[in-house]
């Protein structure tokens, strides 16, 4: 049986002591153990940033690629080897800024992967510039007089674009987060989880500030109702409903039709097309004599 011990990495963690990123790391580890996934069945995919270092701190397969490009790489990985539980874990700058376009189209594609956004509302690794989720008016190490543009509304965007699992998590609630992540990973299709992860070094508000404003998604919320999900996603800027906002199974999963044709298993193991079949296609270019 898989235990959290199996996931323990010996790599030195570079995060600040006390950073809520540790909460996400632990919650993810617990979720994977709860689902009974062994390390070699899991592939973590990240871009660049503080959050994006997470894959080094968990023993499983990992791709730590370029800033902003985790999503397309994860899609490629998942198509080529669908047996892997593929999970993107990266920052808000990485996934909403540099890679925002990829996320938008991932919502449309619905690949069977999980996307966990460490949303600290800041570019932490580059020392405190605004991220796409930094609230308007908030001063940063670059926007000295306060951010002058509106924050991105990615949860709402996810709902609008047909993402099949949309949730908000809180890094300060280990129990709740590990349960939520387990649900996200188990969901078939794209699971998108924006996790509030206050940066205790560059962020404006401490964890406690968020703790006061985090509320559970109302028990009577119908997660299959897009309009209800949308209004939760767009709630007030100072109140954060946490939990599953939207979930549906009514959408084909990316690459499904291809898999129906070629069968399951890693593409590396499927037989390649025969020589004769290619030669026949080449021969078709010969213009026959009259």
């Amino acid at each position: 049986m898989t235990t959290t011990q199996d996931y323990r990495s010996s790599i030195e963690n570079q995060w600040c002591p006390g950073c809520p990123n540790y909460g996400i790391l632990t919650a993810l580890e617990r979720a994977l153990v709860a689902l009974g996934r062994a390390p070699h069945e899991v592939c973590l995919v990240s871009g660049i940033g503080q959050a994006a270092k997470l894959p080094h701190y968990l023993r499983c397969h990992a791709w730590n690629g370029l800033h902003g490009r985790a999503i397309p790489a994860a899609i490629g990985i998942h198509v080529a080897n669908p047996a892997l539980t593929t999970i993107v874990t990266s920052g808000d700058g990485d996934l909403y800024g540099e890679g925002g376009n990829h996320l938008l189209h991932a919502f449309r594609r619905n690949p069977d992967i999980t996307v966990i956004v460490h949303d600290n509302r800041i570019y932490a690794l580059t020392k405190g510039q605004a991220s796409p989720t930094t609230p308007r008016g908030e001063p940063t190490r670059l926007q000295f007089d306060g951010v002058e543009i509106d924050p991105a509304q990615m949860l709402a965007t996810a709902v609008v674009h047909g993402c099949t699992f949309v949730a908000r998590g809180f890094a300060g609630d280990l129990e709740g987060l590990s349960t939520l992540l387990a649900r996200a990973i188990a969901h078939r299709g794209l699971s998108f989880v924006d996790v509030i992860q206050p940066c205790i070094t560059w962020g404006k508000h401490p964890l406690a500030w968020y703790r006061e404003r985090v509320v559970p998604v109302p028990t009577d919320h119908d997660a299959t109702d897009r309009n209800a999900a949308l209004s939760l996603a767009l709630d007030s800027p100072d109140r954060f409903p946490v939990g599953v906002l939207y979930e549906t199974a009514e959408k084909p999963v990316f690459a499904e039709s291809y898999r129906v044709r070629v069968g399951d298993g890693p593409l590396a193991r499927l037989p390649r097309i025969g020589r004769a079949a290619i030669q026949a296609r080449l021969a078709a270019f010969v213009v026959n004599k009259d």
Binding site: C43, G65, P72, I75, P266
Partner: peptide, 22 residues
């Protein structure tokens, strides 16, 4: 058909890393 050329090559690289010639 990728959303842009960056996604195109990144998807292909991801697939390649997962064993598919891409």
């Amino acid at each position: 058909q990728a959303e842009d050329e960056i996604a195109a090559i990144e998807m292909a690289l991801g697939a390649s890393a997962a064993g598919a010639r891409a």
